[in-house]
Structure formats: C-alpha cells, structure tokens
Amino acid sequence: MNELAISAQGLTKQFKTRGGMVTAVENLSLRVTPGETYGLIGPDGAGKSTATRVILGLLTRTAGESSILGFDSMADSYEIRERVGYIAQQNVLPADLTVMENMRFFAGVQCVSAEAQKKRIPELLAFAGLSNFTNRLAGRLSGGMKKKLALACSLIHEPQVVMLDEPTLGVDPVSRREFWSLLGDLRAEKGLTIFVCTPYMDEAERCTQIGLLYGGKLIAAGTPTQIKGLLPGHLLEFTPAQFAAAQQRITGMEGVLELQTYGEKLHVFVDDVGARKAQIEMALAAEGIAHDDLREIEVRMEEAFISLVQQQTEKVGV
C-alpha cells in the first residue's frame, strides 16, 4: 500500500438535500503512483471537487476507503496536511496582502521555520515568475499570475503531493500553458506527484494517467493513449452542405459505429475507412448532398470522452 501516492477504493459520497439523497461520487477506485501526473477529467458537476475533498479528508466519506501516501483520509488528516499541497477550486488569496505577504502568510499557516522561509520563498517566487512582483497586492495580479501565486503558496511546506482543483479555470490559453509548464518542471525536477482536476479535455494530454469522471462515476481510466484507444474504429470528418439531411442519411448505415456533430462538420466513426468512405460518398451523392472531401482524422480526448459518455448513457437507457 505504501508505494502508492494516492489511493481510493469504492469511495462513495452522498449528500442529503431537500430532494433526498444525492450521490456525488459513486464507487470510485483509483491508484496514483509517486511521480505521476494524474488528471481527473470531467465536466462541471461530475463530482471532481467532491472526490478531491473526500480524498483530502476535508469531507467525510459515505463508504469506501482512501489514503494519501499511505495515510488514511479520515484518521490521519494532520499527517496529510503536512505532506500535501492543495489549491481549492474557488481558491481565494488574501487580496489585500502583497505577493510576499501571501507567501509568508501561508508559510506561517504551515509552520515553516523563519530560516526555511528565507530560502524557499525567493526560490518559489522565481519558479513562479513572480520575483519582480513581490510588493504587488494579490488582488491586483492578472488571473494567470494569481494561479501561479496560489501554486507557489501550496508548495511552501515542500509537499510530496499536490492536489489541484481546476487550477486553470477561467484562465486564457497562454496562461494555461504557462501553468502547465510549471507543473512539468515540478514533475521533471522534483518528482512531485500531481493530482489535477480539469474540465478541459486537451489538458488530459498533459497527464501520465487520467480518469474520466461523469455523473459521479469513473467511466474510463488509463494513459491518454489507452483511453483514445478505447474508441471503436476510425474517425472520418467532412462538411456537408445540408447538415441535417446528411446526419439523417448516415445514421444507422452499415459499418457506421457512431456519429458526432462538430460545428458545421460531421464526425463519423466507421469500422473500415476504405469501404465505408466510398459507401458514404455514394449515399450522399444519391441524396444530392454536396460535401467536401471525407478525410480520416486523429481521435482527440474530446471525441473519446463524448463517445464514452454516449455509450454509458445508452447502457443505462437499456
């Protein structure tokens, strides 16, 4: 057990609401080895934050077990707090404190000695690219800089594991990439275990292992390549002139495994590119539907996620 950085078995969390019991996380099991960058990926309301908080011991669990670095989430919360950094989703840094004061504040909360602070704070500020902003009020930092400061504060006690709940939410793509570059440095240079929740499907590609969470349940887990490999067949893309007519014609055709809409384009999963491409082209021609070239494209995490969710809903529907 001890070689796992994070572990959960059959973890379930229910909340009482006015409308009755709601299961936010259902029978979640995951194993994260040290040095891994684990992504818990899913849309809003999937249960990512609840799962993270239960694993951290901030919420009680209804059933199952979970631990970090071998310490039980419920029983050993002090040991966990000492060894784990956390950025909450609605993470709020004291806005009326400067960057430096924020660092000192969090150092104080984590009981970091004055001597250690002197060494670590400048290092962390340099790492986060904030060395020139030590006197700026946190409230006056840009969105991306606030996230970097939050990351620096979460590392002040030199944790072995960091748990980041949607650390890039609402941040633009440039700042998102800078943030992930910092996470890459932590992984490559310090061997830190990183657990990150995100609704951005493209961020899954940054992780070594991912779990797709939907409706409180883990619907798939593995490396990004493995997850994309779960999809059946090959993916064809094209733009029809008459969208609805094309969609209707192709649905249910032999060898068509799944149809997804993509703006003005259609994404068609087929069992065999050579055979089906010609069939689809003929069917469209027979209906008089003009279109651009049908081309095979690579499956991205988003297509995989949508497909897996659709399979899941179909299973439940039957």
Binding site: P43, D44, G45, A46, G170, P199, M201, F243, Q260, T261, Y262, G263, E264, E302, F305, I306, V309, Q310
Partner: peptide
C-alpha cells in the same frame, strides 16, 4: 464557459 462537452457540441450545432 462551464458547460459540459456534449452540451457544447449541441450548442455549436445551433450556431451553425
């Protein structure tokens, strides 16, 4: 912003 991927796809179908 903040809408799940399947709803986002549906939304883009409406846009087009």
């Amino acid at each position: 912003a903040g809408v799940d991927p399947i709803s986002r796809r549906d939304f883009w179908t409406l846009i087009y």
